[in-house]
């Protein structure tokens, strides 16, 4: 039996197949990436399947308190895989756990730490107290400014999300193959000794 040819043949058969199909590589899925960030009094949740492909419409979003796991609210994602909800009133030591379940066994989650939330509510309170002492014109101005800032910052948040969300890199893929071949070699060495 020409056993020694086995690896070579496998290599010759499967490698071309993989190389031909390789260009399809970056289109990954099957892992839900959840990004949650505050924007203008609301928390925006974006869920993607890697590479900006949004999760299926109507994926279940659950917001729970990080302390005791109480469910605060539930909702469903829209066409873009987004879900928005107002920042809830919470005690200062409570964070939020936001999980998205697309069904079919895929689940992803993201946490907002208490610190992040506290900072938010503080700035909001400060703004509110300031707002009451402002003249109507100043109030309008501050509103315009906060809207403009939100608009400018949005793309940055997206860029950040995209970076987090780049999926398996070529390095991971090749590294993984290396591991597998290495483990094979190790096993072979161990079995030969016996």
């Amino acid at each position: 039996m020409k056993k020694s040819l086995f690896p070579i043949v496998i290599l010759r058969t499967l490698l071309p197949v993989l190389l031909i199909l390789g260009p399809a590589l970056p289109a990954l899925a099957h892992r839900i990436q959840v990004l949650a960030y505050p924007s203008g009094g609301e928390i925006i949740v974006e869920a993607t399947l890697g590479n900006e492909q949004p999760v299926t419409r109507g994926s279940e979003v659950t917001v729970t308190k990080s302390v005791n796991g109480d469910v605060l609210l539930r909702g469903e994602t829209d066409m873009q895989g987004r879900f928005t909800f107002p920042i809830p009133e919470l005690s200062p030591d409570t964070g939020l756990l936001i999980s998205v379940n697309s069904g079919m066994g895929h689940l992803g989650s993201s946490t907002l730490t208490p610190e992040e939330l506290v900072k938010l509510s503080e700035t909001r309170e400060a703004e509110e107290s300031k707002a009451s002492s402002l003249s109507p014109e100043e109030q309008r101005l501050s509103e315009l400014i906060s809207r403009a800032v939100a608009r400018e910052v949005e793309p940055l948040k997206h860029m950040l999300a995209k970076k987090m969300d780049s999926g398996p890199s070529m390095r991971d893929i090749i590294g993984g193959i290396g591991w597998l071949v290495g483990i094979g070699g190790l096993l072979a060495a161990l079995k030969k000794k016996r």
């Binding site: 020694s4 086995f6 690896p7 496998i10 094979g184 079995k191």
Partner: peptide, 9 residues
């Protein structure tokens, strides 16, 4: 033993 590397592939 003979099939280990093929299995790894």
């Amino acid at each position: 033993y003979d099939h280990i590397i093929g299995t790894a592939m």
